[in-house]
Design a protein around this nucleic acid. Sequence first.
DNA 1: CATGAATGAGCCTTCATTCAT
DNA 2: TATGAATGAAGGCTCATTCAT
Lengths: 207, 207, 207, 207
Amino acid sequence: MKNLKLNNRQAKAIETKAKIYDSADQLFRTYGFDHVSVDSIVEKAGVSKGSFYVHFDSKNSLISALATDFVARLDLDYKSFLESFPPNAMASEILLSIVGKIVDVLTLTIGYNSMKIIYEALITRTINTDPIVGYDRELYKMFNEIIKKGIDQQEFQTEMTIDTITKHCIMAIRGITYEWCIRYPDFDLKSEVLIHFKILLNGLKKQ
Amino acid sequence: MKNLKLNNRQAKAIETKAKIYDSADQLFRTYGFDHVSVDSIVEKAGVSKGSFYVHFDSKNSLISALATDFVARLDLDYKSFLESFPPNAMASEILLSIVGKIVDVLTLTIGYNSMKIIYEALITRTINTDPIVGYDRELYKMFNEIIKKGIDQQEFQTEMTIDTITKHCIMAIRGITYEWCIRYPDFDLKSEVLIHFKILLNGLKKQ
Amino acid sequence: MKNLKLNNRQAKAIETKAKIYDSADQLFRTYGFDHVSVDSIVEKAGVSKGSFYVHFDSKNSLISALATDFVARLDLDYKSFLESFPPNAMASEILLSIVGKIVDVLTLTIGYNSMKIIYEALITRTINTDPIVGYDRELYKMFNEIIKKGIDQQEFQTEMTIDTITKHCIMAIRGITYEWCIRYPDFDLKSEVLIHFKILLNGLKKQ
Amino acid sequence: MKNLKLNNRQAKAIETKAKIYDSADQLFRTYGFDHVSVDSIVEKAGVSKGSFYVHFDSKNSLISALATDFVARLDLDYKSFLESFPPNAMASEILLSIVGKIVDVLTLTIGYNSMKIIYEALITRTINTDPIVGYDRELYKMFNEIIKKGIDQQEFQTEMTIDTITKHCIMAIRGITYEWCIRYPDFDLKSEVLIHFKILLNGLKKQ
DNA sequence: CATGAATGAGCCTTCATTCAT
DNA sequence: TATGAATGAAGGCTCATTCAT
């Protein structure tokens, strides 16, 4: 009986936390981390301010949690996309496809607003950036595999390590996305990324 | 004689403005635009708050002025560096040299702190970003010339326009610098930029 | 028991709000809305500035609340005064009495200082003027009844609508009160209002 | 020769003063006294801030000068209008005409904006209100004459002194104009003034 | 007379966090 | 767990006036 009560309370607690989490998510995507106050979050969630600090240490820790989950979901999506390729597909093709997929997600699913907010947060470092830029992020592993395949298939040169090439590919995407963020709306992310990768892949080819 | 007197007054005014300007510059470089208050600027400058608003319309306009001047000085420096090359130098060599020079300035002269602040401001768009990212910035013109030379010398392929290549080169630098900003200190800007350009130049070569 | 506790907290909060409210009321009456800062209000109330914004959205909303309550109390007073008249009293007599009562309240209870502040605010429109000048204010209804009675009793002419006469009566009071505000202390509000109403009532009589 | 120079200087000075005066006039009419800064006045006038304080003791004294001149011009206009009546015209007719004329000037020539600003200033008393509300204002003399004529012609009752009636007439206009200011644009000044005067004149008639 | 740089008090509002209940 | 009142530092900006030149 006591357990049951506790479970009820726990369930309520989880629900409360979820309400805060979801409200924050929506608000942040719309207005950015800096322009959303704890007040507005709890108001939208319909809970008290005190509750907020019961469930999250600070505004920043909520942001971090949000970002981590977000990236994890993203990479899961990319992974399933990647698994849809036949084993004998060429690495450069796969690379171009996944890059295209990523850019589509950035522009269509996530959208400029949210991306800008994330890229702001990354450089402002009010949050733990590791889930997003850490080399153990799932995304890096995926790229790594593809590059490795390219080298094994003798499509890519071996002058640089797989890790190096991986890093530079993802860095390129991030760099061009940053450019997109600061040039929006006068910048077509997809075409620019594809152009850049065309040069990069050309430069990586075994000659 | 009257001119002299006026000049004295004007000189004082210029001095005051400079004190504000310099104090702001130092504080911004250390703490970032958002974390420096007008109060702290005028305190450091040893002038009144009213004086601040005599010389600058707002905190933002001061930031803009600062950024514009900054970039102009930078490009002047790059230009004189560029002019030191012999006319028959190869485009890819010049490109690599100037890129190296730029990175040296970013890391050694300007420093991480200041760069991060600028990159923050760029994405936050609290400032007029045009002097920095506008395609009429002197830097673009310099790169343009070099690329053109490379094409004329039949070193680079002609599949893309000069402007496109120029943009992608500078975009690459900016992208990697952004990466530096979010990875510092675990990131060697110079070596990464050079690696990236090695790939890029390789991909741009006429084959 | 829990309710009791809650009530204690709520009581404290109400008390805090009241302290702010009362302090503001006193200060406004003395110095006028424009010359009382939020700082001075919270200082007088002995609470923090943050508390002010917990209880009121803005300085202006406090002013509005103050004005609305003020007028409501006033009209309640007038109403009870009005109800003290015997049903067969003549309309002109009642009118003269209530006008006299109003003027007494304005001069003796409220006082010149407060009145001037309200009349300033009315014309500056820094506040929502509706509770004071809106035709649905209780005062208008009272006057309406009296005028109607006067017409029913064939004391007043029927050339104008009841509403028109009502408006002009109240407008006259307001106009003369404005005159008082700009001529104080060289102006006897009561005698001037009575003279004016003597003329007005004379002009309204059935002939 | 010295005189000539001085005269030139004096002429310049007068011109400077006029420029300040005119600029202030325009700005005040548009934005109100409180919302026009000395800075904006001198900017519009194309003179220095120092010059402003050479010619006017303060912002307030400029406002006062402006108001005085303004009223004087107005009354001159009313006077010439009054003189156009035939000597045997009835007082009530003249009164109604001049009142109509005044209201036309208020609404059409001066306009709501300026009137509101004046009525604000009157009650705020940042300025010397005497030129506007002083009983020695030309307007009072004109009304006085008309009322006197009405009494002489046995049109008006003699229960009140000429001065009293005069005051109440002008007070009525001012009161209704105040009402206009706080109700604009939902208030037709002219028709309301005429209605009010119809009642008043009716109440003043000899019976 | 003219200039305009300098002053500095004043003002409203925001917000993350704490803590007693 | 949940509440929400209370805190207080921080921040950008306005403006009438002065005064040295």
